[in-house]
Write a protein that binds this DNA or RNA. Structure first.
Lengths: 327, 327
DNA sequence: CCCCCTTGTGAGAGCGCTCTCAGCCAGCAT
DNA sequence: ATGCTGGCTGAGAGCGCTCTCACAAGGGGG
């Protein structure tokens, strides 16, 4: 009834525990006929090693945690970033024969839970996917002696390894595209100033404008659709003559599109719009949204690679401008 | 350097291992002054129990797996179902002091991985969130002796406990709303016939129409936006005089809206449209989409409750029609 | 006074596994 | 014959914890 143990398998195969262990773990120093006999016993009994016992002696868990340090509502919104990261991490972990454990640490209670879980030996390392660069969780885990890799440059000045996407460069390329297509009064709807992505994309916008000697026109949003609508409305009030807007997220761009339509502006005729993220809805927007795509799957792969190979340097991945019809 | 053990804590507090264990596990039979001393030692050393050792002896893992038996791309699309389930399960598990481990089992390789992981004693039970009612995973796990609860009625005739949402009733209410507002030729874009949600929503549509003696007009989609577009296009060809359509998912409804616009039909003037799911984009559609909302968080809670309290009967949750402008 | 209970503590077994180390048996050189 | 490999296998310790059980100490009741 209960799960068979090594002992049982050994008895059935007529060998010792040690030999079964060797076979199960793929040791090469086992005679062929014994290996076959053991494998048959394993199958007949449906033996699966007890991971707790194994971990206890090896001090390894053969699994890694992927922690989303955000409220679930954000993680599973239309934002394709998380999905891509999960896919990438899974792929790489698979290749290394490690199990991925997803954890949500949205609340402070969640932080504590994650800390307990990861320090109790359940995992060999942690990938923290946090949008807030000042998140205390990565540092806290590192202090506990757990290998940690961050998705997104940490703002805390910690020296933890991280994988980030070139937000500055992505924003620059978007604004440059606007400039090159003859736009002259280019506004931006920036992301929240406490998130790395918000900060860096604004920096990119500023960089590109500075190079061209143009004035910046800024509204602040929080990456949501509603804040994009409001930001755009305010921008139109501030500077009715603007002819382009770079939104730091597609959701905000979608909101901006709506505000523009309401204000009677035509896109891209009167105002060009570029977003950021390339969400699934972007190609279906009216007009289809020009946006900056990020290599999210690649990001996941790099994250896992960094965790599995300690000591390697942090990585910054390039973006790609996807030109559709809105700009 | 290495993590402190019970032994270390015991030495520091000047008591035995057993006593420390008692304190850590909240036994009441420990003298107050000793309890305090032990707790201080625990804190000073930053002691966290080794979960592997604990599981080994207790045969419990104090965590449950939430398995998504779908490709990640589906799980993290705009579909709010999964997000809600995760939230609900997390909340309930939290209350029971259990850890939730999310796992993706999209591929057959993933199935195998999940099976190994869950049978190796990592978790006390599994919630399988699968959209495909004929998914073999739940039954396979159950055969291994692991407690399993399914999200969505299994199609395999297995007697596993499940939590489902009243898809039939939801579809019925949508179609009845159409009927009541005077629509006479009501078509549907159904979901895939191999998914419970697809089957049941079609049944609901048929039920409501049968009651009113009207003819059914059916196209088959796969819940995606593109299939909604195609389904609608085909429907308009089949029956140009239709004046309403019930799409079995919001994404398909969004695609249908697009097809309708392209065909010069006005919504809801010429054709009324109702979707299903109430995705985040639904209120922002043009026109805002009338749809059927599901109590997804509640579903998650019930799922966890069922897993934690074996023997309780399966649950079917009601839906809610959200009337916006498209119908 | 002893006996019995109650209350609190420690000793020790053992969960299922890995891994070191010793041992065994060829086979071959000495 | 003896010694020495080298290739395989088994014995046994021990990972960090829980939990049973024995036991010590103290306090009534007979």
């Amino acid at each position: 009834m209960s799960r068979p143990t090594l002992e049982k398998v050994a008895a059935r195969a007529g060998v010792s525990r040690a030999t079964v262990s060797r076979v199960v773990n793929g040791s090469t120093t086992v005679a062929e006929h014994i290996r076959v006999a053991v494998q048959r016993a394993v199958e007949e009994l449906g033996y699966v090693p007890n991971q707790a016992a194994r971990s206890l002696v090896t001090q390894r868990a053969d699994s890694i945690a992927l922690v989303f340090s955000e409220p679930p509502v954000r993680v599973f919104s239309d934002d394709p970033t998380f999905a891509g990261i999960i896919r990438g991490v899974s792929a790489e972990a698979d290749a290394a024969d490690k199990q991925v454990v997803l954890m949500l640490a949205g609340s402070s209670r969640g932080h504590e839970r994650v800390e307990r879980y990861t320090t109790s030996g359940h995992v060999d390392g942690v990938i923290v996917a946090s949008m807030h660069g000042a998140d205390p969780l990565p540092a806290a885990l590192a202090r506990r002696g757990i290998p940690v890799v961050c998705s997104g440059r940490p703002l805390t000045g910690s020296s933890l390894p991280y994988v980030d996407i070139d937000n500055v460069g992505g924003a620059e390329s978007a604004v440059r595209h606007l400039l090159e297509s003859g736009r002259r009064r280019i506004a931006t709807i920036a992301g929240p100033p406490d998130m790395v992505a918000g900060i860096d994309r604004l920096t990119g916008y500023r960089n590109a404008l500075r190079d061209s000697g143009r004035r910046s026109i800024i509204a602040i949003g929080d990456f949501t659709r509603d804040s994009g609508f409001e930001g755009m409305t305010q921008l139109l009030e501030d500077d009715p003559g603007l002819d382009a807007v770079f939104a730091a997220s597609d959701m905000m761009a979608l909101g901006a599109l709506q505000a523009l339509r309401k204000a009677g502006r035509r896109v891209p005729g009167d105002v060009a719009v570029i977003g950021y993220d390339d969400v699934p809805a972007a190609p279906y927007a009216d007009p289809p949204l020009t946006t900056v795509r990020q290599p999210t799957t690649r990001m996941g792969r790099e994250l896992a690679r960094l965790l599995l190979n300690p000591g390697e340097p942090s990585v910054i991945l390039p973006t790609e401008l996807v030109v559709r019809e809105s700009a």
